[in-house]
Nucleic acid binder design. Structure first.
Length: 112
DNA sequence: GGGTTGACCAATG
DNA sequence: TCATTGGCCAACC
């Protein structure tokens, strides 16, 4: 798979994440079926501009140290269930907010 | 061909 | 709950 094709596959999943929900790099990597979580991260770093990157979090619900503050505004705006609070690093309640590509396409196969 | 880097993950103390 | 360690995959120099 070309790099661009991989990028498109990743971005398509990120754009498919509904507001108020989040998904993880691992889930995306697993859904794409190619490469690993780190490749997803690199794609986001280079091409994640035009997509809701704040809906993509790490496996523990935290965000990249570089964008946590920016993402907080989006979470408050979308009503994403947060956890912890001002206590520590901004974190998302994955127990409630976790979304997976498979759960999103209910009956909509989309195709490839 | 080899070493370094990165928006990572899971296990352990 | 937080910090550390090892493993992971691909791109870049």
């Amino acid at each position: 798979m070309d790099r661009e094709a991989y990028v498109e596959a990743v971005l398509r999943i990120v754009e498919a994440v509904p507001p108020g929900r989040v998904t993880t790099y691992g889930v995306i990597a697993d859904s794409v079926g190619v490469g690993g979580p780190r490749q997803v991260g690199q794609v986001m770093a280079n091409y994640g501009g035009p997509v809701p990157w704040w809906r993509v979090v790490r496996s523990d619900g935290s965000l990249p140290d570089t964008h946590q503050r920016s993402a907080r505004h989006h979470y408050l705006d979308e009503g994403t269930p947060l956890r912890g609070g001002v206590r520590a690093v901004l974190r998302v309640d994955l127990t409630t907010a976790l979304w997976t590509p498979a759960a999103g396409r209910t009956g909509d196969v989309g195709g490839v």
